[in-house]
Each structure stands twice: as C-alpha cells, then as structure tokens.
Design a protein around this nucleic acid. Sequence first.
DNA 1: CTGAAAGCGCTAACAC
DNA 2: GTGTTAGCGCTTTCAG
Lengths: 394, 394
Amino acid sequence: MSKVRIIDVAREAGVSLGTVSNALNHPERVRPDTRRSIEEAIERLGYTPNQSARMLRGGHARALGIVVPQLAHAAILQVVNGANTEARRLGLDVLVAYADNLETQRRHLSFLQGSQMAGVIVMPVDDAWRAPANPAVPIVTVGAVREEAGWYVAEDHRAQGRIVATHLIARGCARIAVIGSARSARMLRRLEGIRAAAADRGVELEVLDAGDRAVSGDGYTLGSALATRAADERPDAIIGLTDVLAAGAIDGVLAAGLSVPGDVAIAGCDGNPFAWCGPISLTTCAPLGYELGRRAVQTLVGLIRERAEQQERAARDARTLTLPHPERSRKTAPARGEVGGPQYADGAPDADERDEAHRELVRPFLLVRESTVAGAGAKEGAAAIPERNVGAYL
Amino acid sequence: MSKVRIIDVAREAGVSLGTVSNALNHPERVRPDTRRSIEEAIERLGYTPNQSARMLRGGHARALGIVVPQLAHAAILQVVNGANTEARRLGLDVLVAYADNLETQRRHLSFLQGSQMAGVIVMPVDDAWRAPANPAVPIVTVGAVREEAGWYVAEDHRAQGRIVATHLIARGCARIAVIGSARSARMLRRLEGIRAAAADRGVELEVLDAGDRAVSGDGYTLGSALATRAADERPDAIIGLTDVLAAGAIDGVLAAGLSVPGDVAIAGCDGNPFAWCGPISLTTCAPLGYELGRRAVQTLVGLIRERAEQQERAARDARTLTLPHPERSRKTAPARGEVGGPQYADGAPDADERDEAHRELVRPFLLVRESTVAGAGAKEGAAAIPERNVGAYL
DNA sequence: CTGAAAGCGCTAACAC
DNA sequence: GTGTTAGCGCTTTCAG
C-alpha cells in the first residue's frame, strides 16, 4: 500500500536511488532498458513521488491556484475555464479552491501559497478582502479592483452600465427604471455608468431597490409593480443591474399584461447565461468571465517570470561576488503605511518596490436581443435551432 | 517578499524557533502576549508556513482532492458542490482539478496523491479509466463503476431508464422512441433499464442514434423527424437518454406543429438543469450530483479513518514489540491478475487485502413535469413566480 | 552507472 | 518558556 519511497523502487528495480531519481527527472541520462525496468518497478509498487519532498528540495511548481467564492455562478465558471485553458496552453496545471467566506478564503490562499504554487488567482468573496502585501507567490485579483498595491483584472462595471443605458436611450427610451441592490459594489458601479449616460442625454432615471438577495423573484415583483402603473407614470425601459433581476422583470412585466419590448424594453448588465432561460432573449453585456480568466493567467505568468528572473539574477550576483554564504534576500517588509505608494530604492526603480496597484479593465460589449429590439433573435439564423445546453456558455 | 522562514519570524518577534512553531500548532502552550507578538511578526513579514515542509515532516492533510473531467456540466458541478459542502462539514478543505483527457487526469491524480491529500475523488474522464491498484491515499471513483477493485459511488443508470419508461407506460404510452448515443456507457445502461421496463409491459420500443456528440440539435432533428411521420407510425412518447437530447426533441416536435405532451410525451433521464431552459418543463430524474458528491466524501472519510487507525495500530504494535526499526508495512503489490477477487491473508481478513470492488448506487427518483403530464408545473404553486437562475440548481 | 551525503523548512522531542 | 536537534523524501553533487 502507501509509503512507497524512491529507495523501494530502486531496490525493486535493482538499481541505485540516484538512478531512479534521474529516470524521473532527467530520463535522457538513463539507459533506455534501465529506465524501462524502473518504470515497471514504479508501476508494480504503485510509487507516487512525494510532491512535498520534491518542492521542499527546491522544485518549481507547474501549477497555479485559483480561489473562487462559489461555483454555482456562470461568470465564475467562465473565469475558471478561461484560466484553466490559458494555463494549460502555457503548460501549467490549475487547482481550484472555493471559499464562501473570508476566513476560508484566507486559509485557502495561505495553503496554496505555502504549497509552492507558481502563483495564485483570487476572486474575492467579499468587498472587504485585501490582497496580502508581501505574498510568498505572485497573486492576481480577478473581478474586483482595490486601491491597495496589487494586480487586478476586472470587468469595467461602469462601462457596462453606460453602454446598456446608451443603447436604450438610442432606441428612444426616455424614462428608465433601474433595479438593483446597493449592497453590491459592482451593481453600484454599473449604476454610476447608467447615471453618466442618462445625465448626458437628459433622460429621467428612477432607481428601485431589489433588496439584499436580489434574486429573480425580486425582479419579478418590481417589474410587475412598474407595469401596473398608469401609462404616463410608467417607465419605457427597465435595466436590471444583474441579468437575473432583468430576467425576473421580464416575467413580471409579461405577467402584468404588457409586452416586451413593445411597452417596456428591458436589459440586463452582467452577461449571466444562467439567467437566459426566459421566454424573451435578454439584451445584456456579453459574458467576459472567460476573458478575465485568460488575462489573469497571462498577468500572473508575467509576474512569475519576472520573479524567477529576479531570483536568478540575485543568485548569479551572489555567486559572482563569491560571497561565502549567498545572503538570503530577506529584506524586512515595509511598514504598513509605506505600502501603496510607488517607492524607489536609492534612485533605481526596483521591481520589488514597484508595488502600486496595476488595474486592467476589460471593455464590455453589448448583446442586442429581443428584450430591447423586437425580432433581434432572428439575426441568429432564419431557421435557428435553439441550443438547449446552458453549459455551452461556460 | 518571499522566502520568509519560521526562523525569521522568531528573530523578528525576539523568541525562539520552537516557540513560533508552538504558537502555530499548539497555541495553548504559548503565553498570550508572546503569541500576540509572534502573530504581529508573522503579519509584518508576510510569513506563510511552507506546507511542503509541514507535510513532509508528517503532518496530516486537511484537504481532499477531486479530479473532474470538466466544469461546464451541471451534474459535475453538483458533485463538486456536494463534496465541498460535506467535506467542509467534516472540517476538510477541497481542491478541484480538472482534466479533459486521460493523461492530464493521470497527472493530476498523481500530483494530488503526492501532495499528501487526505484522499482523492475521481470522476473519470473516460470509460477507459482504471483506478490505481495501490493508491498512496484512498481514492473513491464517482459517476462510474468498474469491475476492478476500488470504491465507487454512482447513479443507478439502469434504474433511471426504468423509472422514466415505467412512468410513460403508466401514462398510457405504447410506442416509445428512445434517442441517444451508443458511445456513452451511461446512456447504454439507461437504455437497458428502458428495455427491461418495456419488455415487462409489452411496449414497442424504437431506438434512434443521436450521433457521437448528442447535442440538443440532434434531439431537435430526431424529434422533428419523428413528429412529421404519419400518425399511425409515430411514437406517442420520446425518451432522451440525456436531458439535453430530450429538450431538443421538445423543440423539434413543437416546430413540427405537434403538441407536447398531447401528441407526444417527452422525458429525459439524467436530471441536467442546464437543459431545463425550454418552453415546456421537462419530466426527468432528479439531479443526484449533490448526493453523489456527499456520499463520495463520506466513503472517502471512512477509508481515511480506517487507514489512519491501521497505521496507528501498526505503529503501536511495533513499539510494543520494541523492534529496533519499526518495519515499514512495505508489502509488494499483488500481481495484476490477483486484483479484483476478495483475498484473505492466512485466514484473517485483513483490511489491506479486502480489495474487492465496493459499489454504491444512488437510487434515482422522478420529477414529473409538463412534458409528460399537462399542467404538472402548476403543482409548484398557484401563482408561481419562475426562478430564472439556473445556478440555483447547482 | 553506483554509493554517499547535504540540505530544503518544518515539527516535536529533548534537556535546560 | 529557551536552544538544539533528528529526520520527513527528495534532488543534486561528487568521487569512484
């Protein structure tokens, strides 16, 4: 059973320990027949190299970690899929951990760092999350941006709100109701974008609170309430700050006997395929999770390479100077207050010190569909056969 | 930056190395104020314990690994969610790896075993996959059962086919068309169940090939083909061996101008919420992924405990007998041919030897909805507000 | 190719 | 509480 070590394999194959290690790590250094008999021994014993020992000895991890707040969300799955695909393309594996609270997230992050992952991607579970100042491995934050130092990749929520509102205004809508929840930072930022667009064109805006949960039922309730107003007090468009709310609003408006988009045009903002099951296809922003995941990995791999070069350089310098004990680059961390602003060590900008926040925003684009433009779905093909697998969007 | 070690923390806090280790692993052995200053030092330096060193030293992992073939599938997400929830309940963390081919799967499995995970759950990517004979850590296979030794948790696919067919037959259907793909073992097993049910009642069965991809478009094509037949050659029911096929078939039948379930009743088999976006709610089996994930973890934790007790016992025995070097239980693996049958070592059944296949099948149950019983959806509540978030099913 | 040995960072056990 | 130490399994190096 377990606890087969390299020495056991060596004995079984009748070779020395070092030869087995070579066969595993430098196959070319071992004669083919020797290698074969070693492989057979490994197979016979069910040997699995102890990764802890390997990493401890100084190996380089070929895996990235990603910490996400949940899996039952389309955008998150897209991020994970995008990250995985891009990482595999670059020859890296991905391990996913999920954490529905700050404490668990902190533990996972610490575990992945301590497990010598090459790097870690984090989708914060909570707006209160802060990236660690001196991570043991590079960290990229996805889906949120902060003021603190760190690397961030996120959707541009303001732009999402803006392009959705602009689309509706261009279609002639003059009274727009927005439904959403103030508790979510991303919904608030979408609202800012909508406000900006509306202010530019002098469009009347009304904001309704969907409550903390903001499920589709809340959209339904608000949608039907709006639809039962007198015609001259009724908005001609509704924006859901999430697609789930917008999809609920469509149901609510239809249930009240009005038509979509004839009486009321409705649009979402966050491109969530899980909400696209309604009777009328929803105008919204295209899902960008996949792209976010890809970019996060690209950013991360850049950081990993940078760090590797840095360490190599440090090692080389140490060797060149023939220091008896190549001093560890164990600089004490900067005090809390110093983090955040750009810092320069004695004149030359050092990669270590370049710890300002790097924010990459992914530009949204609009999916125009039937909920704002009658017949927009027909664009997809004359005799379109509907795809009934939401998984295809992930 | 990186490479902060425990000794660095000790120096920073002005205590000894052992005290820091104690503060981390046995906080009660350290005075509160000492502990506090150590925590501050950790925070200041950004120290992250090296998990590799920890594990190597002999720690017990508090994490399970799970290897899945993809994430864009509802059943798989349910398994992961179920496993995660149950594991967290038992105080374990879960790491997810995904592998879309045998080679990647093998690598992930090996990595997770080598990383001292407490145990590993595998959803095979391919019917050709075999569980390793002598895993370094316990392994439970989910979603497939094999003849080989090992632990398996899976849906009872035959029973799925049987209860769906039985339901349709009870509703009066006498000519059933089944659509599916012969390449999938689980579809074939569902077909067996359907055949058994049909044979019992003398119902006529017709099987149509949906091709290798078996996407909803294939269901659409076959559904509309069946619907355009003359009335006396037309089946009165269609079973999709997956929900995606059944959902496509509904679209196809409706497009051909027939009604569902009036002219043709339609049912799925695999409880896939991602396919539940159609205009008519689908009768199918309830999704069991969550339950599979839970049971897999329970089984796994049982195996982990068993193994731990075993090792403890071995260690105690060795100590009692005061052997100079407590002999490692390094028994050579049984030859390939021996695996599979129950084996007993010299009379006493040894847990090590008990390597028969343990198969746990989860019993399916039916969700009766509108695609087989008109108005069945109304059961869900008089003024039901539709839920527009498929993620809620995951 | 063999055999021997250093050391990765940590935990736990030891004597003080 | 402190300081010191063995050893987890592996990779790599060095001399033969």
